[in-house]
Design a protein around this nucleic acid. Structure first.
Length: 877
RNA sequence: GGGCGCGUAGCUCAGCGGCAGAGCACUACCUUGACAUGGUAGGGGUCACAGGUUCGAUCCCUGUCGCGCCCACCA
C-alpha cells in the first residue's frame, strides 16, 4: 500500500542510484536507433547550481528522457568549464588566506593548486545536477581542460594561425586593471553613472590670451593627448587649424588638426585626441600619424611618461589632482554634470575598464561568421523562438576581431613560442616548434586563451575531435542546444563559427532559447541583493519533481520568468495529487493487466477515458516535439487533474462499489492502464515520482520505468465520439445540478431528487444509462425522467434537460428570484448579441458554415434557457 | 541612435481571428472511504490606449503611452 503522501527526500537518492546503475543514461545502448544528442552548456567548475541552471537542465533532461522513451539512442553530454578568471580568483583568494600568493608560488605550483582545488571542489555542480535528476551520460563527462579537449584547442589555434586568421596585433584593448588582463568586447558591461564633463581651456601657442576649449569626461587622459581635432568645415576654428596648442600641466605642444571625426554639434566642437586611451582617438591618431602616448601602468596607475607630480597616482586620484591644478591655473572653463555610460568589468561591475595599448592575439572571425550566417540562412540551424535568429545575424554581421588572449595563468596556454629575436613559432607542441626554429632555445607565450575559445569547440571536442571517432560520426551535428539568450553571442555564435569552419557542418540543428529566471518580485537575482532562489533549497522542501514541473510549466517565450516557493508548492501539490490518484487505484485493486487492449473496453466511461488519454498523449507529444515545454506540462496537468482525477476516478467509484463484476474488472484494468500512461507521460517532467509509482503500483513485474517504459503511442485508439459526447453530457448535467443545489442553499448533507423532463428519448436513455454516477456525484437520492414538473418545484435547464428540484423550505425565495432574474437578463443579452450577429447579412454570407451553425445553436440554447428561467421566475412569484 | 520583448483577474502568467483561461490570493460551504499538499460552488476582466483590416479583433496592421532588455555611441 502506497504511503499517504510521496516523500521526495526519502527516495530521490535511491532512485538516482538505481538509474545510474542500470546504465540507462548511457549513449550507444541502441546502436540501430536514431541518434539524439544534446550538449550541456558546461557550467563553471566554480559554480553552484542556481535556478537558471535548474531551468536549463530541466529542459534538457525533459527532452533526453522523452526521446529515450521514444526509442532513440540518446547522448546527453555532460561536463564542466574551466572558467579562467573565476577559478583563478577563487584559488588566489584561498591562497591569500594561507598567506600565499600566485606570484609567490610561480606558474607551475599555482596551477597545481588549482588542479587540487578542482579535484576537491570542482565536482559540486555536477552533483547538484544529479539531485535535479539529470539523466546525462556521466561516463562521458568532459572538462574543457581535459587532455583531449586541450588537444582540440591547440589544433584549432594552430590551424587558424596557419590560415592567417589568428594574428598578433598591438592596438587598443579593453583592459581590466584589477585582474590585469585584456577582455573581449563582449565582456564589457556599460553602466550608466552620474559623472561630469570638464571643459578645459588649452592655450594656443604664440597667441597669448587665446584658447581652444575641449570637453572630456576623463580629464586625466589629457596627459596623453597628442592633438586637438576640429571639424574641417567648422568656421569657428578654421584659423586655428595647423597651429599648436600648449597642453596644460605638461607644456607639451600638440597640433590642432582637422578631422571629420570631430562633431561641431557636440561639446565645444573641438575634441582632445588621446590615441592611446580612446578607441576613436586611436583611429584619428593613426590617420594623422600622431604619437601614441600611453600614460597608464597595467594596474591603472599613472606611469612615468606623465609629469612627476602625477606619477604613481591612481586614476581617481590623478583625476582629482588634475582638475584641481587646472582650476588653479585658471584653465578649467566650467564643469557640467552628466549621466554617461562607463565600461565596467562584467563579473563584479565595479572595476572601470581602460582602453589600453597592448599587444594581444586576435582572431579574425569575419570569414567564420560568414559561414555561420550562411548555415542559418539555409535553415541548417533553427532558433526556437525564431526571433532570436535576427539577434544572431545582427551580431555576426557586424562582428569585429575577437581578442582571444588573456593575461592569466589558468586556461589553455597559447601554443606559440618565441626565439631570442622574438620570431613566432606556432605549433602543436614545443618539440614541433623547436624543430621549426631549427633547434633554437624558445620561450612560450605566457598568455592563455579566452575561456570561450574552448567552449566554442564543445560540440565536437567532447566527441573526440580531432580524432575521427565513431561518436563524432554518429552524434554530430547534435540535435538540440538548450540555452539562455544571454550567451547567444558568447557561446552559440562562436560554436556555430567553429563548427561550420572545422566540421563543415553546424554543431546543432535547433537552438532552444529559454527565458531568464527572476525572483518572485521580478528582480534580477544577485548575491548582493540576497534574493537568490536556491534550487537546492526548493528541492529539499518540495522535491526535485516539483521544481522541475514548475520550471517546465513556466518556461516559455517570455523574456523573463519568475520563480519562487509559492509556484513550486503548486508543483508539489500536483505530485501529491498524482500520488493519491495512484493510491486510490491501488486501493481499488487496479493492477496493470498484461495484454490489456484499451480499444476493447465496453463501458462508456472507459471508452471515454481511453479516448481522452489518447488525446492527452497526442497533445503532450506534439508540444514536446515543438519544444514547448509549458504546453506539454499544461496538457499533462490538465488531463491528470481535471479529467482523470476530477471525473474519471469519481465515475469509477460507484462502479467499484457496485456488484457487476465484469464492469468492475474492466474498469480496474482501464484505470490501471490510464494510470500507467499518465506515469509515462509525466516521466520527462517528474522522473522520480513516476519511477516510484512505476515500481510500486505493480511491484511484481516492474524493472525501472527508465529501461522498460515506452512513450505512449495511442493515435490508433478509437476516438469513441459517442462515448465522449455522452460523458460530456453527464459532466454538464452533474455540474448543473451542483450549481443549482449550491444556489438553492440545499444543506450539505441533504439529498434531493432530480426530475429530468425531456421529450427526447435520447436524453431519457442517457439518464438511465448513467443514473448511478449522476445520483452519486450530484448527491441525489433519486434521478428520474418525466414530462411533468411536480408541484412546488422549480425547474432549471441543465444541458438540454430540465432539473426539477423539490424546494421544501430550504429555498430563500427572494434570493432565488433575484438570481433567476439576473440569469434571465444575461440570457436575454446573449440572445440579442446572437440575433445581431445572425441578422448581419455579411456575416451570414461570409462566415464559414460551422461558425454559423455554432452561433445558431448557441442562440437556441440561450433562448431555451431564457424561456425556462422566465417560467421559473413566474413560478417563484 | 538601431533592434527586440512585454502591458490579459488582486498577484504571477498562458492563450493569439469565432464562448476570456490557469496557478496563487479572495468568499461561502464541505474533515465525504484516494488526496485539506484536498473537494464543491462563487466573486473578480472596457484583454494599456487610439485608429485600421475583417462578416467578426484580446489575437492581424499602423500609431500613441508605459515597463524591461540588447547593441552602438557618449566631447
Amino acid at each position: 500500500m502506497l504511503d499517504k503522501t510521496f516523500s521526495p527526500k526519502d527516495v530521490e537518492g535511491r532512485i538516482y542510484a538505481l538509474w545510474q546503475d542500470s546504465g540507462a543514461f548511457r549513449a550507444g545502448r541502441r546502436s540501430d536507433a536514431e541518434p539524439f544528442a544534446i550538449m550541456i552548456p558546461p557550467p563553471n567548475i566554480t559554480g553552484r547550481l542556481h535556478i537558471g541552471h535548474a531551468l536549463n537542465n530541466t529542459l534538457q533532461d525533459m527532452l533526453a528522457r522523452f526521446e529515450r522513451m521514444r526509442g532513440k539512442d540518446v547522448l546527453w553530454q555532460p561536463g564542466t568549464d574551466h572558467a579562467g578568471i573565476a577559478t583563478q580568483l577563487i584559488v588566489e583568494r584561498q591562497l591569500a588566506e594561507r598567506q600565499m600568493s600566485r606570484i609567490g608560488l610561480g606558474r607551475e605550483k599555482f596551477l597545481a593548486e588549482i588542479w587540487k582545488w578542482k579535484a576537491e571542489s570542482g565536482g559540486a555542480i555536477t552533483e547538484q545536477l544529479r539531485r535535479l535528476g539529470a539523466s546525462a551520460d556521466w561516463s562521458r563527462e568532459r572538462f574543457t581542460m581535459d587532455e583531449g579537449l586541450s588537444r582540440a584547442v591547440v589544433k584549432v589555434f594552430v590551424e587558424l594561425y596557419r590560415q592567417g586568421l589568428i594574428y598578433k596585433d598591438k592596438r587598443l584593448v579593453n583592459w581590466d586593471p584589477r585582474l590585469q588582463t585584456a577582455v573581449s568586447d563582449l565582456e564589457v558591461e556599460n553602466i550608466e553613472i552620474k559623472g561630469h564633463l570638464w571643459h578645459i581651456r588649452y592655450p594656443i601657442d604664440d597667441m597669448p590670451g587665446t584658447f581652444i576649449t575641449v570637453a572630456t569626461t576623463r580629464p586625466e587622459t589629457m596627459l596623453g593627448d597628442s592633438a586637438v581635432a576640429v571639424h574641417p568645415g567648422d568656421a569657428r576654428y578654421k584659423k586655428l587649424v595647423g597651429r599648436m596648442a600648449v597642453l596644460p600641466l605638461t607644456g607639451r605642444l600638440i597640433p590642432i588638426i582637422a578631422d571629420e571625426y570631430s562633431d561641431p554639434e557636440k561639446g565645444t566642437g573641438a575634441v582632445k585626441i588621446t590615441p592611446a586611451h580612446d578607441f576613436n582617438d586611436f583611429e584619428v591618431g593613426k590617420r594623422h600619424g600622431l604619437a601614441m602616448i600611453n600614460i597608464l601602468n597595467k594596474d591603472g596607475t599613472l606611469n612615468n611618461d606623465v609629469p612627476a607630480p602625477y606619477r604613481g597616482l591612481s586614476r581617481e586620484a590623478a583625476r582629482k589632482k588634475i582638475v584641481a591644478d587646472l582650476d588653479a591655473a585658471g584653465l578649467l572653463d566650467h564643469v557640467e554634470s552628466i549621466v554617461h555610460s562607463v565600461p565596467h568589468d562584467e563579473k563584479t561591475r565595479t572595476v572601470v575598464l581602460e582602453p589600453l595599448l597592448t599587444e594581444q592575439w586576435y582572431l579574425n572571425v569575419e570569414p567564420l561568421a560568414a559561414k555561420a550566417i550562411a548555415a542559418v540562412e539555409k535553415g541548417e540551424t533553427k532558433f526556437v523562438p525564431d526571433n532570436w535568429t535576427n539577434v544572431f545575424f545582427g551580431w555576426l554581421r557586424n562582428i569585429r576581431p575577437w581578442c582571444i588572449s588573456r593575461q592569466l595563468w589558468w586556461g589553455h596556454q597559447i601554443p606559440v613560442w618565441y626565439d631570442a629575436d622574438g620570431k613566432i613559432y606556432c605549433a602543436e607542441s614545443e618539440d614541433e616548434a623547436r624543430a621549426q626554429a631549427g633547434g633554437k632555445d624558445l620561450t612560450r607565450d605566457p598568455d592563455v586563451l579566452d575561456t570561450w575559445f574552448s567552449s566554442a569547440l564543445w560540440p565536437f571536442s567532447t566527441l573526440g575531435w580531432p580524432d575521427k571517432t565513431p561518436e563524432l560520426a554518429r552524434f554530430y551535428p547534435t540535435s538540440v542546444l538548450v540555452t539562455g539568450f544571454d550567451i547567444i553571442f558568447f557561446w552559440v555564435a562562436r560554436m556555430m563559427m567553429m563548427g561550420t569552419h572545422f566540421m563543415g557542418d553546424v554543431p546543432f540543428r535547433t537552438v532552444l532559447i529559454h527565458n531568464r529566471v527572476l525572483d518572485e518580485q521580478g528582480a534580477k537575482m544577485s548575491k548582493t541583493k540576497g534574493n537568490v532562489v536556491d534550487p537546492l533549497v526548493l528541492i529539499d522542501e518540495f522535491g526535485a519533481d516539483a521544481l522541475r514541473f514548475t520550471l517546465a510549466l513556466a518556461a516559455g517565450q517570455n523574456r523573463d520568468m519568475r520563480i519562487g516557493p509559492t509556484r513550486v508548492e503548486a508543483g508539489r501539490n500536483f505530485g501529491t495529487k498524482l500520488w493519491n490518484a495512484a493510491r486510490f487505484c491501488e486501493m481499488n485493486g487496479c493492477v496493470t493487466v498484461p495484454g490489456f487492449d484499451p480499444a476493447s473496453v465496453k463501458q462508456t466511461v472507459n471508452q471515454w477515458i481511453v479516448a481522452e488519454t489518447a488525446r492527452a498523449a497526442a497533445d503532450v507529444t506534439a508540444a514536446l516535439e515543438a519544444l514547448r515545454s509549458n504546453e506539454a506540462a499544461a496538457a499533462a496537468y490538465h488531463f491528470v487533474w481535471d479529467v482523470f482525477c476530477d471525473w474519471y476516478l469519481e465515475f469509477a467509484k460507484p462502479l467499484f462499489n457496485g456488484t457487476d463484476e465484469a464492469v468492475k474488472a474492466e474498469t480496474r484494468a482501464t484505470a490501471a492502464w490510464t494510470r500507467d500512461q499518465i506515469v509515462k507521460l509525466l516521466h520527462p517532467f517528474m522522473p522520480f515520482i513516476t519511477e516510484e509509482l512505476w515500481a510500486l503500483t505493480t511491484p511484481a513485474k516492474r524493472e525501472t520505468l527508465l529501461i522498460e517504459a515506452e512513450w505512449p503511442k495511442l493515435a490508433s485508439l478509437p476516438k469513441s465520439e459517442t462515448a465522449v459526447a455522452e460523458m460530456h453530457w453527464v459532466i454538464d448535467l452533474i455540474k448543473g445540478v451542483r450549481s443549482v443545489r449550491s444556489e438553492m442553499n440545499v444543506p450539505a448533507g441533504a439529498k434531493t431528487t432530480l426530475v429530468l423532463t425531456s421529450a427526447l428519448a435520447e436524453t431519457q436513455a442517457r439518464l438511465s444509462r448513467n443514473r448511478g454516477v449522476i445520483e452519486t456525484l450530484a448527491r441525489l437520492n433519486e434521478a428520474k425522467t418525466g414530462s411533468t414538473i411536480p408541484a412546488g418545484s422549480a425547474q432549471f435547464v441543465i444541458g438540454e434537460a430540465v432539473a426539477a428540484l423539490p424546494l421544501g423550505d430550504v429555498i430563500d425565495f427572494a434570493k432565488e428570484r433575484a438570481r433567476l432574474e439576473k440569469e434571465l437578463k444575461k440570457a436575454e443579452d446573449e440572445i440579442a448579441r446572437f440575433d445581431a450577429k445572425l441578422s448581419n447579412e455579411q456575416f451570414v454570407s461570409r462566415a464559414p458554415e460551422e461558425v454559423l451553425t455554432e452561433q445558431r445553436e448557441r442562440r437556441a440554447e440561450a433562448a431555451s434557457l431564457a424561456a425556462r428561467l422566465r417560467e421559473a421566475v413566474q413560478r417563484l412569484a
